[in-house]
Simulated scan of single mutants.
Amino acid sequence: MAHLLGQPGCMESLRADLRDLQAAIADVSSRAGAVRVPSWKFPDQVSCELDVAALLERYRYRPGEPELSQHGHVVLLELLIDRY
């Protein structure tokens, strides 16, 4: 599966999953209130205050830059864990 690391289709699928998950979190938080706990990925920040849209923009596929794309792919996976 290492050959998929940094591939645009995989990364876009992860980005879509993160957007969907963040929307579900926002929906639940609007009804039950935000849970103020440290982020797993960014422990110096509160999880409910992460700017997921900015992170999705920052960590995306970068044509011609495979190392940055691979790093972005790993960060997207970590963000998915963080959101859960």
Rank of each mutant, 00 (worst) to 15 (best):
M1C: 09
A2Y: 12
A2V: 15
H3D: 13
L4A: 09
L5D: 14
G6I: 01
Q7E: 12
Q7F: 09
P8L: 00
G9D: 02
G9L: 05
G9A: 02
C10N: 03
C10F: 00
M11L: 07
M11I: 09
M11Q: 12
E12L: 11
S13G: 07
A16C: 03
D17E: 14
L18E: 04
L18M: 12
L18C: 10
R19Q: 05
R19M: 03
R19C: 02
D20S: 13
D20E: 10
D20Y: 00
L21I: 02
L21H: 01
Q22N: 14
Q22L: 04
Q22F: 00
A23Y: 00
A23P: 03
A23R: 15
A24S: 12
I25K: 07
I25P: 05
I25S: 04
A26M: 14
A26V: 10
A26L: 11
D27R: 10
V28L: 08
S30E: 03
S30M: 01
S30Q: 07
A32E: 08
G33D: 00
A34T: 06
V35K: 13
V35D: 08
V35T: 11
R36N: 07
V37Q: 08
P38W: 02
P38Q: 00
P38I: 01
S39I: 05
S39R: 03
W40V: 07
W40K: 13
W40P: 03
F42I: 09
P43D: 11
P43S: 11
D44W: 10
D44E: 15
Q45V: 09
V46S: 03
V46C: 03
S47M: 05
C48H: 14
C48R: 08
C48I: 06
C48N: 11
E49H: 14
L50K: 14
L50Q: 14
D51F: 05
D51A: 13
D51P: 12
D51W: 08
A53C: 11
A53D: 15
A53I: 10
A54Y: 01
L55F: 03
L55C: 12
L56S: 15
R58M: 15
Y59Q: 03
Y59M: 05
R60S: 15
R60V: 14
R60T: 15
P63L: 06
G64K: 12
E65Q: 15
E65V: 12
E65W: 10
P66R: 13
E67W: 10
L68G: 12
L68P: 07
L68C: 13
S69G: 10
S69E: 00
S69W: 01
Q70V: 02
G72M: 02
H73Q: 13
V74G: 07
V75C: 08
V75Y: 04
V75M: 15
V75W: 05
L77K: 06
L77M: 14
E78P: 05
L79H: 04
L80E: 04
L80H: 08
I81F: 09
I81K: 09
I81G: 06
I81H: 08
D82F: 02
R83T: 06
R83A: 14
R83V: 06
Y84M: 00
Y84P: 04
Y84E: 02
